[in-house]
């Protein structure tokens, strides 16, 4: 790896292993994965159901600690962070998008996007502009004060994307973000990802089944029997 490459590397996984003990039996989901993601790179992870895609993404987001392996984020080992530091890492460095596009109940679109700012203790006076900005990027400023539960699936996913990027993360982790959307909406969501990645230099790790989605990314990683191809 050249020096320039190293400086450009955001995520560097080495020998990442995750195993679960089920009924006293150890069985491994991810045996010794190596993987890198560069800054502003869009990576698609594909693979059959149960192959460990979500597990990998949870490890990347520090939601799950690996059994073994090394995880460098922006050159720093982040597996040694304590609980509070992990939360801070999630607040400041990553954005997370789920398949089900979960919205906060009894809240408006605006309030949904405000939550990450609240947890980051951002100044209240700075919030409206920032929220407006990210909602503009997913074309939802006109729905800002609508209840988020009344939106369509595609719109909810766009709110989720805006929510994931409101704190200027270095990477957005998306677990099958188009899994519950039709082809048109999937297409649209991928275009938003693409435009965000190019305008903000945010890296994306997108787990998907859909070849059309993967096609839009810079790199496609196949995960099969726990091996990256």
């Amino acid at each position: 790896m050249s020096k320039q490459q190293r400086e450009n590397t955001l995520i560097d996984l080495k020998g990442m292993t995750k195993s679960y003990t089920v009924n006293g039996q150890l069985f491994s989901v991810l045996p010794k994965i190596n993987m890198t993601v560069s800054k502003s790179e869009m990576v698609a992870i594909m693979g059959p159901s149960g192959s460990g895609k979500s597990t990998l993404l949870f490890i990347l987001g520090l939601f799950l600690s690996p059994t073994e392996g090394e995880y460098l984020f922006d050159g720093k080992n982040i597996l040694t962070l304590n609980r509070g530091q992990q939360a801070q890492f999630r607040r400041e460095r990553i954005g997370f998008v789920l398949q089900s596009a979960d919205m906060f109940q009894h809240s408006t679109v605006y309030e949904n996007v405000e939550y990450p700012l609240i947890y980051a203790r951002s100044r209240p006076s700075e919030r409206p502009e920032r929220i407006h900005q990210v909602l503009q990027q997913v074309n939802l400023t006109n729905r800002m004060h609508h209840s988020s539960n009344k939106l369509s699936g595609g719109e909810k996913q766009r709110v989720a994307i805006a929510r994931a990027m409101v704190n200027h993360p270095a990477v957005i982790l998306a677990d099958e973000p188009t899994g519950q959307l039709d082809a048109d909406n999937s297409q649209q969501i991928m275009e938003y990802f693409r435009s965000i990645s190019s305008t903000t230099d945010t890296a994306m790790v997108i787990v998907t089944h859909d070849p059309n989605v993967a096609e839009k990314c810079d790199t496609v990683l196949q995960i099969c029997n726990g091996q990256l191809l």
Binding site: A87, R91, Y119, N167
Partner: peptide
């Protein structure tokens, strides 16, 4: 509200929040 709690933690809420 289990999912809501998970989501909040995923976007950076700390335990005390």
């Amino acid at each position: 509200r289990t999912r809501e709690i998970g989501l909040k933690k995923a976007i950076g809420a700390e335990d005390h929040d």
